[in-house]
Computed example of a mutant assay.
Amino acid sequence: MHSKMDCVSRSPLFSPLAPAVKAKLITVTHHRKFYQKGQLIRQPLDHQEGMLILDEGMAKIYALAANGKEKIIELLRSGDVVGQHWLFAPHENQGFIQATSDAWVCSIQYDDFQRLLGESASLSLAMINNFGNQLIEAEKNQLRRDLLDAKARLMAYLRDCAVESGQIEFELPLKKKELANILGITPETLSRQFKQLAAEGQIIVNKRQITIC
């Protein structure tokens, strides 16, 4: 069964927010619009500005070259989020998002989100604090990239997660693809480093559940 609260929480932008703040976001979220396989979800000049959450199904983001050839930019699966930054500045779609299977999509439009920001001081304050935390995390990630190798970057990140959660066992807050991007490594390298850290006895991995040894 679709949970509106869980849907909004899939966005890394909104997941740290308090339930009362998320409840306000739910009021401007359009839930589970159906798209048939092959149907365009977004395209240039459709005036659909905002964030998308692929609740169920698969899709692809692509652009067309001058010769009309399609270039795939990203493949999307259930739970993926696209266009969080489009909630903060008007943006006209330059590419296409197409369902590659039957898909159900949730969305928040730019105008609706901006209106809610203006009406809700608690949401505005929460977003400012969240951005501040993201800036701090970005600075940490840059230091990791500059000073540490891939395995050390990953271990430093996992230790930070343990400190933030207050316990040595925690669930990864990001998908592994997103984590690889943040750490500046490929998903394949990330998988190898997880296996190596586990083999060395530094961590225990059970899907997204991590234990620091």
Rank of each mutant, 00 (worst) to 15 (best):
P19H: 13
H47Y: 08
I41K: 01
L183D: 14
R115F: 05
N181I: 00
V205I: 10
L45R: 06
H85E: 12
I53C: 11
A126L: 08
R10Y: 15
C106I: 01
L25D: 00
Q142Y: 09
A63K: 03
R144T: 04
A138T: 13
D111S: 11
S9M: 07
K207A: 15
L116H: 03
N206Y: 03
A198I: 04
I72N: 09
E171K: 05
A126Q: 07
D6L: 15
Q84I: 05
L135F: 03
L54Y: 07
R159F: 15
A121F: 14
Q114D: 14
P187W: 01
D6K: 13
F34L: 01
G68T: 02
L117S: 12
L76T: 04
A138Q: 14
I203P: 00
A89I: 06
A162S: 12
P187V: 04
G68Q: 05
S107M: 10
G57Y: 01
V205S: 07
A126M: 12
F96D: 05
A162D: 09
A199D: 01
L25K: 01
F131A: 02
K37Q: 02
L76I: 04
D111R: 09
G50P: 09
L116Y: 04
T186P: 04
Q142T: 15
R145N: 07
P19W: 12
F34E: 13
L25P: 00
G118R: 00
M1D: 10
Q209D: 13
G79N: 04
I73T: 06
M127R: 00
Y157H: 03
R153F: 12
M51S: 08
C161N: 10
V21C: 04
A66D: 15
E74D: 15
A156Q: 11
R153T: 10
V21I: 11
F88T: 09
D111K: 12
G184F: 08
Q36A: 10
V105Y: 08
N141R: 14
Q98T: 01
S107H: 06
P12H: 09
L87P: 12
K151T: 10
E178T: 00
A180G: 06
K195D: 15
H91E: 14
K37F: 01
I61V: 15
V28I: 14
K195V: 13
E171V: 02
P173S: 11
I72H: 04
F88V: 13
E200I: 03
I128K: 15
P19S: 10
E139P: 09
D149C: 02
L25R: 02
Y157A: 04
I128R: 12
M58P: 13
L174C: 01
D160T: 06
E188R: 08
Q84A: 15
R77I: 04
